[in-house]
Design a protein around this nucleic acid. Structure first.
Length: 462
RNA sequence: GGCACCGUGGCGGAGUGGCUACGCAGAGGACUGCAAAUCCUUGUACCCCGGUUCGAUUCCGGGCGGUGCCUCCA
């Protein structure tokens, strides 16, 4: 079997991937806090790790890969959103979790194998905290439970920061009950009107970092193969997860490979609500097919920063037109099942080099265009579809892609009549009338493509 | 201030110590009544200055420019 190479943030280099158990490859990706609509930046990790999941499934089998992606459904931001809208916290979390799922569906991202919710795991969190307190890695202070950073020597290994650096660079006022400025909250007390759960340290709610450690342990075990997320999570979130899990598990490694995707920028500015340049997935889907968003997110290597703008989407759309154009042309050809083409697979196996893989995809498309015999076409189509499936591209119905299925029967009939009329006058070499009919079609955004075996048409999108 | 990352042709974006990335856009050609699609061809590309080397966009050092993180952020 070919080997997969992944860039491990902990080692700061590419490493050959070797799972602990080939029959059960485990991957945990930090999911969203569901308090609002997701923006396109939020979609990058799910898309990237969806591709990784497909690659792993190709190598180890569909049932050999377990992906857990959590939903954080208790958090101060959710509480604030609930207060604002007058809904219950549960209602806000449930609603936005559903919306999140719908958005990801549109981007061709299958639901994770497991989707644990924080509020369903309060027990495991308390158990983990108890272990940490018992072993001297955590302490109670004024209703809080805090992790003692000094108790874990390797703290900072992932982000390559020393405690001294962190203290020197601290910009935030330190809570007086902390023994050390870098200690972080595992559990915080809840007031009467705040949601809370009973614990040995009083009624309260969990800190963000603890959730992931506890859920990861509960579903995937003490040591997992791959832990992923956005690069912004390296510090403090993943650093803290490592500290909690490692100390709770007697020093066992939490994850063998740490993967982080680069950030998405909006032009020259960071995407943020205060700048008003947030591109919500929901809004983008009104203009663009989900596959355009997905493909656009994969145009750059996952670790590289990606600048998001309308131009990128338009270009991506044109690129995909090329793939779907081939598939449409081969519409009547039955695809022959094919192995994933080697060059394409090699690109993905090299730390998910999706831009390289896409260039191979275009090479396959070119080959399919040039295929002459029925056998060649059938094989080319098979290869293109098989390769595309690994990235989640080109799997849609080509007619649907070109807008043919999105209109009413009546509209289609009208267009067919015009096409027929034009065919007739073209046969009579009445070019003036033929062009007039074409103008009429163009006005309806219909592009006519004349071929040796008659004309086809498609909807053009600007 | 600390840590990390990046600087490739009009745009996006891979990659490599010497050989076409690729896509979009542009130019020329084939095909076509004309378009479109497709195919073929095409463009002084690798931030600057040193160094290593037979040879550097690719390695090393310095500079300039840009970005991210530094405890709510994918």
């Amino acid at each position: 079997m070919k080997s997969l190479t992944l860039y491990d943030t902990m080692a700061r280099k590419k490493r050959v991937f070797e799972p602990i158990d080939e029959s059960r490859v485990t991957m945990y990706v930090c999911g969203p806090t569901v308090y609002s609509y997701a923006h396109i930046g939020n979609a990058r990790p799910p898309v990237v790790f969806d591709v990784l999941r497909r690659v792993l499934a190709h190598l180890y089998g569909e049932s050999g890969v377990v992906l857990a992606a959590n939903i954080t459904d208790i958090d101060d931001k959710i509480m604030a959103a609930a207060r604002e809208s007058g809904e219950s916290i549960e209602a806000v979390a449930t609603r936005f979790a559903r919306i999140y799922r719908e958005d990801l569906d549109a981007l061709g991202i299958a639901p994770p194998t497991l989707e644990p919710k924080a509020t369903d795991h309060i027990g495991p969190m308390i158990a983990m905290m108890q272990r940490l307190v018992d072993t001297g890695h955590a302490y109670e202070a004024e209703g809080h439970v805090l992790f003692s950073v000094k108790s874990y020597e390797a703290y900072g290994a992932l982000s390559k920061r020393s405690l001294d650096d962190m203290i020197a660079g601290a910009r935030v006022e330190v809570a007086p009950y902390k023994k050390d400025p870098c200690d972080f909250v595992l559990w915080k007390p809840s007031s009467e009107d705040e949601p809370g759960w009973d614990s040995p340290w009083g009624r309260g709610r969990p800190g963000w970092h603890l959730e992931c450690s506890a859920m990861c342990e509960a579903h995937l075990g003490e040591t997992i193969d791959i832990h992923g997320g956005g690069i912004d999570l390296v510090f403090p979130h993943h650093e803290n997860e490592i500290a909690q899990s490692t100390c709770a598990h007697g020093g066992k490694t939490m994850a063998n490979y740490w993967l982080h995707n680069g950030f998405l920028n909006m032009g020259s500015d960071k995407m943020s609500k205060s700048l008003g340049n947030v591109a919500l997935i929901r809004d983008l889907l009104k203009t663009w097919p989900g596959e355009v968003l997905r493909c656009a997110l994969l145009t750059a290597h996952y670790r590289a920063p990606l600048t998001w703008n309308a131009d990128l989407l338009a270009k991506t759309r044109r690129s995909l037109d090329r793939i779907y154009g081939v598939l449409r042309r081969l519409g009547d050809i039955e695809a022959v099942a094919a192995d994933v083409p080697e060059a394409f697979l090699d690109a993905l196996l090299d730390d998910l080099n999706t831009p390289k893989a896409m260039s191979e995809l275009f090479a396959l498309a070119g080959a399919a265009n040039k295929a002459e015999t029925a056998e060649e076409k059938a094989r080319a189509k098979g290869e293109l579809l098989t390769a595309g499936a690994l990235m989640g591209l080109g799997q849609d119905n080509p007619d649907a892609w070109f807008g043919l299925t999105g209109m009413s029967e009546a509209e289609r009939a009208e267009i067919d009549i015009l096409i027929e009329k034009r065919q007739k006058v073209r046969a009579d070499k009445d070019w003036a009338t033929a062009d007039a009919v074409r103008d009429e079609l163009n006005a309806r955004k219909v592009q006519v493509d004349d071929g040796p075996e008659g004309s086809t048409w498609r909807i053009v999108v600007e």
